[in-house]
Design a protein around this nucleic acid. Sequence first.
DNA 1: ATGATAAAGGCGAACGTTCGCCTAGAAAGA
DNA 2: TCTTTCTAGGCGAACGTTCGCCTTTATCAT
Lengths: 339, 339
Amino acid sequence: MTATKVTLKDVAARAGVSYQTVSKVLNGEMQVAPETMERIQAAVQELGYRPNRIARNMRAGRSFMIGYSWTQTEPGQVNHILDQFLSSMVREAGAVGYYVLPFPFREGNAQVETYRDLIKSGNVDGFVLSSVNYHDPRIQFLLKQQFPFVAFGRSNPEWDFAWVDIDGAAGTRQAVAYLIGRGHRRIAILAWPEDSRVGNDRLQGYLDAMQAAQLAPEPGYILRGEGTFEVGRAMTLHLLDLPADRRPTAIMALNDTMAIGAMAAARERGLTIGTDLAIIGFDDAPMAQYLFPPLSSVRQPIAEAGRKCVELLVALVEGREPEQRHVLLQPSLIIRASS
Amino acid sequence: MTATKVTLKDVAARAGVSYQTVSKVLNGEMQVAPETMERIQAAVQELGYRPNRIARNMRAGRSFMIGYSWTQTEPGQVNHILDQFLSSMVREAGAVGYYVLPFPFREGNAQVETYRDLIKSGNVDGFVLSSVNYHDPRIQFLLKQQFPFVAFGRSNPEWDFAWVDIDGAAGTRQAVAYLIGRGHRRIAILAWPEDSRVGNDRLQGYLDAMQAAQLAPEPGYILRGEGTFEVGRAMTLHLLDLPADRRPTAIMALNDTMAIGAMAAARERGLTIGTDLAIIGFDDAPMAQYLFPPLSSVRQPIAEAGRKCVELLVALVEGREPEQRHVLLQPSLIIRASS
DNA sequence: ATGATAAAGGCGAACGTTCGCCTAGAAAGA
DNA sequence: TCTTTCTAGGCGAACGTTCGCCTTTATCAT
C-alpha cells in the first residue's frame, strides 16, 4: 500500500533512534536495550521495511550478482539443461545472498568484450562459464584479469582455475562396459570433432572400457561429427552398410540427439532397436524415456553441478579459499529398452 | 589490467575538468569545446572507464532490472521454451539498458512474498509473469500494488493489465480445420483440466473448427487430464478401444508430450500413425521433428513473445503508455508425417 | 558603450546504506 | 570522591553517480 519507498530513516523516526542505529541493530552489529529493539522491530514490521539492495551494494562496492552465460541453442535443438542448471544456481545463490544475472550469447560475437564490460561496470562479482572448450578465450581473459570465475567444464589442463565438471569418461565407460557385459563386441561410437573437449573426454571412456575388456577398437568404429540428428543418422547408415561380419551390434552416441538419429537410421534399415542393434545415448534428455523404444542414456547430475558452481564461486568472490577447487561429478547410466 | 575501479573522478582528473562535467558530457547533456571533448574521450579510453551501474541506479532510484519467474518443470519434463524466451528477453532488455533477473520457483511456496520482497528492496522495476492462470494471485497482488508488470498469458478477463499471449484457439482451430480438410470426421481432443486457462483457450479452437464444419463434437471425444505422457497414452488407449464405428481417426493433443503418449498408444494397438490414426501436437517441441513418425504440431512464436513482453514492460516502467496493452501472436501449424 | 544572450564548465547536494569513531551516562572499583 | 570501564547509541563520512543551479567569459545586437 505504501507506494513510497521505506528507508532506514523512516524506521528510525518511528522508533525514535538514529537511522544508523537501526542499521546496526538489523545487522546484528550492536547491542541495544530490549525495549529499543522491540520498538525498532515494530517499526520495521509496521512500515514493511526492506533494506534497499542497491544502496547496500553501493556501499559494499559489490553487486552480489553472479554472471552466467550460455550459448543459445540453434532452433531445432533444445537446451534441456538450462532450466535445471539455472534454477539450481539461482536457488543456491539466493541462499547466500546473491542473484544470477543471465546473458546468453549467440556464438561469434565479441564475447570477451561483454565480460569486460560487466566487470568494469561493477555489474557482477564473478562468473559461471558454461560450454567451455580447450582454448576458451573467456578463461584466458578472466585469468589475466584475476577476476573470480568457475567453469562448468574443464579446459586446457595447464591453466589453473576452479571448475566443476561431470566425469564424461566415466559415463561412457560405464555404458560401454554394460554393452560388453551384454555380449556385444562390435561397438561403434558416434563421437564429436577433435576440438571438442567434452567429446574427447567421453570418447576416452569408450577407449578405456574397450581396453579393459581386451577389445581392440576398430578405427572404423570411431566416427566424428557434429552432434546433430542428421549426422547421427548418416553415421549410423554408414555403419549399418558395412559387411555383415563387420557391422556393429551396438552404438554408443555422445548425446541423445545423435542417438535418436541412429534410431532413425536403424529403423530405415529395418532393424529392431534393442535386439538387432543396441543404442545408448548421453545426456538423458527428458524425451529419451518417451521414444520408441525408450532410449538408454547417461544422466548427468545437473542440479548438483549448478549448486557446486555457485558454492565454489561465492567462496572465491568472498576471498575464502574453497576446500576443493575442482569438482568432478559422477553421471549414472539409465538402462531402457534400446539396449 | 587496472585492478582498481576507475571512476568519474579519475577520468576527470586526467582530462582536467570536474567530474560532473565528465558525467554530463558522456551522457550528452552538455556542450563542451571540441578539445575538451577529445581530452575526455581520450581519458575514458586510456583508463577504460565504464560507468558504475550500481551508483547510477542508486541515483536513479531504480534498478533497471526486470524480474522474471517461471515454474520449474518437474524432472522428466522439459522446458524447451525457456532458452528461447529468456534469451529473447535478455536481448531485448539489453538493447534498452535493462537486465533480466530470473527467479524460478517450485510451486506451492509463498510466491507473493517473493514478489513483495523484490519490490520493497528495489531489486526490480517490473515483472514478466509466465504460467499465469485464471485467479493468479501474483496478478491480483501486483495490480493492488500498482507495480508494473506484463503477463505472458491471459487471465481473468475482468482484470485490466498488460499481456502478451499466443492465440492458442487459433492454433488448434487451424490444426483441426486441417484434419477436417483431410477428410477426418471423428476427431478427438486430449485436453486439460477445466481450471487451465491455456487449455480452455486451445480447446475452444477445436470447438470452433468443428462447428465451422457443421460437425457436432461428440462429448466422448473431449478428454481432460494433466498434460503428461502417461495421461495422453491412457486417454488414447481409451479412445482406441471404442467400437470401430465410433473410434476417432484423428487426435489433437494440447501439447506434444500428450501427443507422444498418443503415439505410443497407437503403436501398442498396432496402428500406423499418419494413416490409421492422425495425430497433431501443440508446442512444436524440438524433439517433435525427430520422432517416428515426425509429429505435426503447432509452433508458437516464443522469441517474439519474449521481445514483446519486454517492450511492453519497459514502456510501462518508464511511464510511457504503450500503444497496445494486449498483444496476441499467431502460432503456425507445422505439418509432418503424423497427420 | 551597454545590456542581453549564449557557451563552457564548476559546485553542492542527494540517493540509502554501512563503517568507524565518538559521547553521555551509569556502574563499578579504588 | 575520583577515575575507569562498560553500555547504549549518536554522528559524520563515504560509495559513484546525476541533477539543478550558478559563474565566468565571449559574442552580439542595439
